[in-house]
Amino acid sequence: MWPIVIAAIIGVLAGVVIGFFVARWYMKKYFQDNPPISADMIKQMMAQMGQKPSQKKLNQVMASMKAQQKKEK
């Protein structure tokens, strides 16, 4: 009886640890492929700050954000 209980506890703990790392890997990959901020959001933020965003400025901001993401890897 005790070996079954101990095996079940070890199995549950191993599942939790493996699940944590799989979920962490998946979320990193998801946010890398789908950044949480878009060009439209940047355009709205710049408009709220009183700036008239040009396409050139939006492209510069997006490029700097992508460069920062690559640097963090």
Rank of each mutant, 00 (worst) to 15 (best):
M1F: 12
W2V: 12
W2A: 06
W2G: 09
P3M: 06
V5S: 13
V5N: 08
V5F: 11
V5H: 11
I6T: 13
I6V: 15
A7R: 04
V12D: 04
V12Y: 09
L13N: 06
V16S: 01
V17G: 00
I18E: 03
F20P: 00
F20G: 01
F21L: 08
F21E: 07
V22C: 00
V22G: 00
A23W: 14
R24Y: 13
R24C: 04
W25L: 09
Y26K: 01
K29R: 12
Y30L: 15
F31I: 10
Q32P: 05
N34I: 04
P35K: 00
P35F: 13
I37T: 13
S38Y: 02
S38W: 03
D40N: 06
D40W: 07
D40P: 00
D40R: 02
K43M: 14
K43L: 09
Q44N: 15
M45Q: 14
M46H: 04
A47N: 08
A47D: 10
Q48W: 07
Q48F: 13
M49C: 11
M49L: 10
M49D: 15
Q51C: 10
Q51W: 08
S54M: 06
Q55Y: 03
Q55S: 00
K56P: 06
K56T: 07
K56W: 08
K56F: 05
K57Q: 14
L58G: 00
N59L: 14
N59Q: 15
Q60W: 08
V61L: 06
M62Y: 06
A63N: 09
S64H: 08
Q68V: 02
Q68S: 05
Q68L: 06
Q68C: 05
Q69G: 06
K71L: 12
K71E: 15
E72P: 02
